[in-house]
């Protein structure tokens, strides 16, 4: 029998034992996404523009020399001047003050509406995708029927019934809008629930609620954020549309859509009155859309190469 002494077991060629030491600090998903977003110049410009618009909506009315509802009948339909920076409307109200107050309403509707939609959509889609089978079948049939009802018509009907005002408007806009995100979440959850970490969580005795809330939803958060950035502008759009046909925000409150609606008949004579709210809508939508594109590239792991 061979003698097995110690020096036969000598360590060779492993001097640099620190080869697998991680040199750079670990970065999380969010840090990585932020790094990618920062590289995307267009998205960053959009983000800055958005910040400026939101900042002005918050503080712009205090910068203006006039209150948004103050009327000055001697200065009707005046173009931009040193006194009224964006001009005045048909009641001599300062457009600079009004456009930021209107922006508050438009953006608030966009954000609140989107949050409600996301909440409902996540719960509904999450449940349908997680439980599968008959529950999923029934829930998705309901969604299918809701989706094939034209969105705007439901919104118009709802706002006729609910009356006018910001709260009613948000409910009207959300009433069927959640189906889009519900479908996305359901698809994601169906895909994710087969993954190993969900199996592990279940094996450890996690309840359905916990699996949905702690494992499935966080893993779909990228999709949700992208959806948010495209959904807020569609709310602003829809609000503008409703206010434009006279179903949205009512005086003395105002929104970008309501301002545009007021200015539209006299556009040929006083173009600035339509251009101010329209430009505000366009810039906000443009920023959200560009930012959404950037976020999709930054957050979607499948696009990374």
């Amino acid at each position: 029998m061979m003698e097995l002494d110690k020096d036969k077991f000598k360590i060779i060629g492993c001097e640099n034992a620190d080869a697998d030491v991680i040199v750079r600090p670990n970065i999380t998903y969010w840090q990585d996404a932020w790094r990618r977003l920062k590289q995307n110049k267009i998205a960053m410009v959009a983000l800055v523009m958005l910040c400026i618009i939101i900042f002005m909506c918050l503080f712009g009315p205090y910068l203006a020399k006039y209150k948004f509802s103050d009327q000055d009948m001697s200065l009707i339909d005046k173009g931009p001047s040193a006194e009224h920076w964006f001009g005045t409307d048909n009641l001599g109200r300062d457009l600079f003050a009004r456009v930021w107050i209107g922006g508050r309403v438009s953006i608030a509707i966009g954000i609140v509406g989107t949050l409600i939609e996301i909440l409902v959509g996540c719960i509904y889609g999450g449940a349908a995708g997680y439980f599968g089978g008959l529950v999923d079948d029934i829930m998705m049939r309901i969604v299918e029927i809701i989706v094939s009802i034209p969105y705007m018509i439901v919104v118009i009907l709802a706002s006729i019934v609910l009356g006018k005002g910001i709260g009613a408007l948000i409910i009207a806009l959300c009433i069927t809008g959640w189906t889009g995100i519900a479908r996305i979440i359901r698809g994601q959850v169906m895909q994710l629930k087969e993954s190993e970490y969900v199996l592990a969580a279940r094996a450890l005795g996690a309840s359905s609620n916990r699996v949905i809330l702690k494992h499935l939803i966080p893993n779909t958060i990228g999709e949700i954020i992208v959806y948010i950035s495209f959904d807020i502008p569609s709310f602003i759009f829809a609000e503008a549309f409703l206010s434009f046909i006279g179903l949205g925000i009512q005086p003395p409150d105002t929104s970008w859509g309501a301002m545009a609606s007021l200015a539209q008949p006299k556009f040929q004579f006083y173009p600035h009155e339509l251009m101010v709210p329209s430009l505000a809508i366009c810039l906000t939508m443009l920023s959200f859309n560009l930012l959404g594109d950037g976020l999709r590239d930054a957050l979607d792991p499948r696009l990374r190469q």
Binding site: A240, F244, A260, Q268, C282, M285, N289, L290
Partner: peptide, 18 residues
């Protein structure tokens, strides 16, 4: 494409009319 989804159609209509 991005401009098209960012500009409401009443603005486009007004610009065309002008």
């Amino acid at each position: 494409a991005i401009l098209g989804v960012s500009v409401p159609n009443f603005v486009i209509a007004a610009l065309l009319q002008q």
